[in-house]
Computed example of a mutant assay.
Amino acid sequence: MARRPTIKDIARRAGVSESAVSFALNDRPGVSQDTRARIRRVAEELGWQPNSAARALSGERSGAVGLVLARPAQTLGVESFFLQLVSGIQEVLSADRVALLFQVVDGIDAECAVYRRWWAERRVDGVLVVDPRTDDPRPELLTRLGLPAVMIGGTGAGAPLSSVWADDARAMAQVVDHLYGLGHRRITHVAGLPGLAHTARRIASLRAEARARGLDPEHVRSVVTDYSDTEGAAATRRVLAEPGPPTALVYDNDVMAVAGIAAAAELGIAVPGRISVVAWDDSALCRVTHPRLTALVRDTAGFGRLAAEELLGVLAGSPPRAREGERPRLEPRESTAPPAAAY
């Protein structure tokens, strides 16, 4: 393997002392402008980069930020939301030459342990925190550690950390407006993981919109899953097999919606002939499925860019604040239609 270039290599090539190289590369006085320029040119030719671990130990930034996902690993590979979110984050970080340190763990306690280790080792300058909980220990921990952070998906209300958020309540209201306008009065929301703040907001919004329209709360409800296609399909089979089944299903991601359509087909229930389907967060999967899925559309990569920009701002000294991302909008497609007669 090729050896990484060192300060000694640069000094030898440039014909100067190692201390002169250190002064030049760390922007310290002690060398002329011509010598500084020559040293930097040689460093670039050799492909030299500063050692992030050594920089961190000396009190300088590590040049990296962290992202930990405490979700079942098998649910991540098929869900487009996180792929788009990370692509937006990476776009901003790359432009600022900041690395993204990514880790998947099996629970919130393990996630907190990663933050403690990263802080102790000075591995990252800050973190992006996803999936805010209704009872979340992470803001208090990160504040106590003094580790800069941005919550992705939190409302920021009363939190000590910066956050970027989307209006889940308004988004659910759009969905209910659409389905109610078509004539649906039996709606089941196939939700994601219980305990997540955005799951709670969507469930609460569905209930509020149902009450506002005088709908029977027994006929408008939510069931929770793990976001996977397996649980999405299983939940679909259960609710469609019940007496007085729903005429419309709202899924918390695209993968569950597609799995739900397949499960309905197995039962001989046509979409949208006998059941209408709405997916949260549009994707290519929603647009190539037959019938094409009515979905909530937003710029998820843009949401990631906003989060990364906010974290870089925090690292530069900006005070904590809450920033709202693009509001999701519903795009009706062929998977929703007026309900058929009861079956």
Rank of each mutant, 00 (worst) to 15 (best):
D9S: 14
S17M: 06
V21M: 10
L25A: 04
R28N: 09
S32F: 06
R41Q: 11
V42D: 12
E44G: 12
E45P: 12
N51M: 12
A54L: 07
A56Y: 11
A56D: 03
S58Q: 12
G59V: 15
V65L: 07
V65R: 06
G66E: 11
V78W: 08
S80I: 04
G88P: 03
Q90M: 10
V92S: 09
V92P: 12
A95H: 11
R97S: 15
R97I: 05
V98G: 02
A99P: 10
Q103P: 01
V104H: 04
I108N: 01
I108C: 01
D109H: 11
C112S: 11
R116G: 04
V124E: 00
D125L: 04
R133I: 14
D136K: 00
T143H: 05
R144D: 15
A149D: 10
V150N: 10
G153C: 10
G153Y: 13
G154Q: 11
S162G: 14
A166N: 14
D167V: 03
D167E: 06
M172Q: 11
V175N: 04
V175Q: 06
V176T: 05
G183R: 00
R186C: 01
L196W: 15
T199K: 01
R201Y: 08
I203T: 14
A204M: 05
S205H: 01
R207H: 14
E218T: 07
V220I: 13
D226V: 07
Y227I: 08
Y227T: 11
Y227S: 11
D229L: 14
G232S: 09
A233T: 08
T236A: 14
T236S: 14
R237T: 15
R238H: 05
L240N: 03
P243I: 03
V250K: 02
N253D: 12
A257D: 04
G260T: 07
I261D: 00
A262H: 13
A263V: 02
A264N: 10
G268A: 04
A270M: 00
A270Q: 05
S283R: 05
A284H: 12
C286F: 09
A295F: 00
F303D: 00
V314R: 15
E324P: 03
R327Q: 15
R327M: 13
R329G: 08
E334F: 09
S335L: 08
